[in-house]
Design a protein around this nucleic acid. Structure first.
Length: 587
RNA sequence: GUCUCCGUGGCGCAGUGGAAAGCGCGUCGGGUUGCGGACCCGAAGGGCGCAGGUUCGAAUCCUGCCGGAGACGCCA
């Protein structure tokens, strides 16, 4: 184990048990980084009350801290222990221990981060675009954040199932299929622009539906035939799905998102499970008829007039809706997939919907054992005016166009820079693509996923500050050192020695990688990892300024510094990869 | 109306119980032509929407209020 916080937590807990008895072995020792030392244990103050009660006389927190320190075994691990203030225990790690752990990480393919010994099966539902609709900025965040969560979970050894809950079913397909028939199936199969321009296709269908009663009637009939599985209708439906899949995959490839066709389990997948789901809710006496619809009233949810709020399982016309699908999905993930954890990476506005759906699932007994259902809420993307991001014309911003602009702007910034080499057109294009896409992704991943965030090209494509390009640059600059040294990072073995404070600070920071990854996974918050990487880059910069590598005073120092460079590089590249951000070799 | 989320230096954001609230951008003043200046050092600037409360300790928890966003049966 190389994470200082965890190692010290174990030692302090042992000291607590030794000093106050075994019942204190599970107390949280509250170990955290501090400005007064590397780490601080803040448990003494909170023990005043329980110990006073146990011992029958008023306890003093500083005295308690002394008792803990007296039993604390940190030989070789901590070089200095100090009690200050009301009872803070300040811990300074031994340089030798830090160096040894950094050395361990350097020699380890996994950078000292262990895999979970008891992997959990986690389903990450994300992206979830709609068939026959263009992907827009709203999908950007759910796709990127979800992908990062999946990658991070996988790195930690969890059994990750990616689940793209594509909107490929329901009422709109009546009008879409009828419109497809009107313009001709052949055109779609040729991937004709009349279909591949999905926004135009959808809007045309919508407009006819709203203005042409005959078309609307046909559409409704078509929905019924679709849900009944009529073969001809299914074939037409499949045409639409296929066109959309090609389009999704194109976007995913460009974004570097790991989703494939195998990860698609759209709403249609659950069609056959809707009846049994409704039936089970009825059989269990949970669902009831209200205003002609089959509904469940989960306790604690109130509507506009303070009346109970229902989850509609079956509409009064007999049709099913998205609530039914989501319930069927939970049931399936529990009974058939045996998931331990399901993370729904979906927009924050659907919060109430998920709370109610989860609640109904619990009533039905579908949430078994320790199964966790989590809505990882995604905040809206705003324009620089603070309102929902729109085009100048007021329409939704298409993802493809947004990415084009990002890459174009990245190119302009790139050309302004002072490169120490020239690039041919193809190389430049590849770098600029990585920078532009990386900038957009990192901008999204570096803020808390549930906060709304302002989409600002100028900010995200900047090469300074907490941006993707800054981190990419930090990595290429390290690579440049190895090129100049004529060696590879893989050949850097140290040994690592820590003499300069900047070396020590960098090494200590590197040891926090595992904790950052784990915390990002536990909370399903990739920005925690992003923050770690940015701080690592800052720490490296300080090292870079203070500690010459190639012109190090002696050979041993040079080897040590090359090793620190190598470990930093691998940590940055691995971390950025977990976020799905590419790192070009040069830029 | 009810519920949820949010309100942190000029701007954009971290921090969700521990000492004096951090970071980036921007501003001002220095330095540095470097192992890629896409840099470094320093300064000004907030006491965390407001008012109470809990706690040894609150930006973090609770209550109320103000302001913003969103959601609130048969769309997803």
């Amino acid at each position: 184990m190389s994470d200082p916080q965890l190692v010290l937590a174990d030692r302090v807990r042992a000291a607590l048990a030794a000093a106050f008895g075994p019942s204190f072995a599970d107390t949280d020792p509250v170990i955290r980084p501090s400005q007064f030392a590397d780490l601080q244990a803040n448990v003494a103050m909170s023990l005043v009350k329980p110990l006073t009660q146990e011992r029958g006389e008023k306890q003093n927190p500083r005295r308690i801290a002394e008792e803990i320190v007296a039993r604390l075994d940190v030989e070789g691990l901590v070089s200095k222990v100090e009690i200050s203030g009301p009872g803070f225990i300040n811990l300074t790690l031994a340089d030798g221990w830090i160096a040894a752990r950094a050395q361990d990480a350097l020699e380890d393919d996994r950078l000292g981060v262990p895999e979970d010994e008891n992997p959990e099966k986690v389903i990450v539902e994300y992206s979830s675009p709609n068939v026959a609709k263009e992907m827009h900025v709203g999908h950007l965040r759910t796709t990127i954040v979800g992908d990062a969560i999946a990658r991070i979970g996988e790195f930690l050894g969890e059994n990750v199932v990616r689940d793209n809950h594509v909107g490929d079913w329901g009422t709109p397909f009546g009008m879409l299929i009828e419109h497809l028939l009107d313009i001709g199936v052949a055109a779609a199969e040729r991937d004709d622009s009349s279909v591949s321009d999905l926004t135009a296709f959808y809007q045309a269908a919508r407009q006819k539906f709203d203005s042409d009663p005959e078309f609307a009637a046909r559409s409704r009939t078509r929905v019924v035939r679709l849900q009944a599985g009529d073969p001809d209708t299914m074939r037409l439906w499949q045409v639409l799905v296929d066109v959309s899949k090609r389009y999704f995959n194109h976007v995913y490839a460009r974004l570097g998102v790991t989703l494939t066709d195998d990860d698609i389990k759209g709403e249609s997948f659950y069609n056959d499970l809707l009846n049994p789901t409704a039936q089970e809710l009825t059989d269990k006496g949970i669902a009831e008829i209200s205003d002609g619809a089959l509904v469940v009233f989960p306790p604690g949810f109130k509507g506009r007039e303070g009346d109970p709020l229902p989850v509609i399982v079956r509409k009064s016309d007999g049709g099913y809706n998205y609530s039914t699908t989501d319930l069927a999905t939970i049931r399936y993930r529990s009974d058939t997939e045996h998931a331990d954890r399901v993370i729904y990476v979906v927009g924050a506005p659907q919060s109430l919907h998920f709370q109610m759906a989860f609640s109904v699932a619990r009533m039905a007994g579908w949430v078994k054992g320790g199964m966790r259902l989590e809505h990882a809420e995604i905040g809206n993307v705003l324009g620089t005016d603070g309102k929902i991001l729109r085009t100048r014309a007021g329409g939704t911003v298409k993802l493809a166009e947004l990415l084009d602009e990002a890459v174009e702007r990245a190119g302009a910034e790139f050309d302004k820079l002072n490169h120490d080499e020239s690039f041919d057109a193809a190389t430049r294009e590849a770098i600029v693509e990585a920078v532009g896409i990386g900038a957009v992704k990192y901008a999204d991943l570096s803020v808390a996923r549930d906060s709304e965030y302002i989409f600002d090209f100028d900010r995200m494509i900047s090469f300074k500050g907490n941006t993707g390009p800054y981190l990419q640059y930090a990595a290429t600059r390290i690579r440049s050192i190895f090129r100049k040294a004529g060696t590879s990072p893989d050949d850097a073995h140290g040994p690592i020695r820590l003499e300069d404070p900047a070396e020590r600070a960098l090494a200590l920071h590197l040891l926090g990688f595992g904790a950052a990854v784990k915390s990002a996974y536990e909370a399903a918050e990739p920005h925690r990892l992003a923050t770690f990487l940015f701080e690592l880059a800052s720490s490296y910069t300080s090292f870079y300024e203070n500690c010459p590598v190639l012109k190090a005073p002696d050979e041993a120092t040079k080897q040590s510094r090359l090793a620190l460079c190598a470990l930093t590089l691998r940590t940055l590249v691995t971390g950025l990869d977990l976020l799905g951000v590419p790192t070009p070799e040069r830029m």
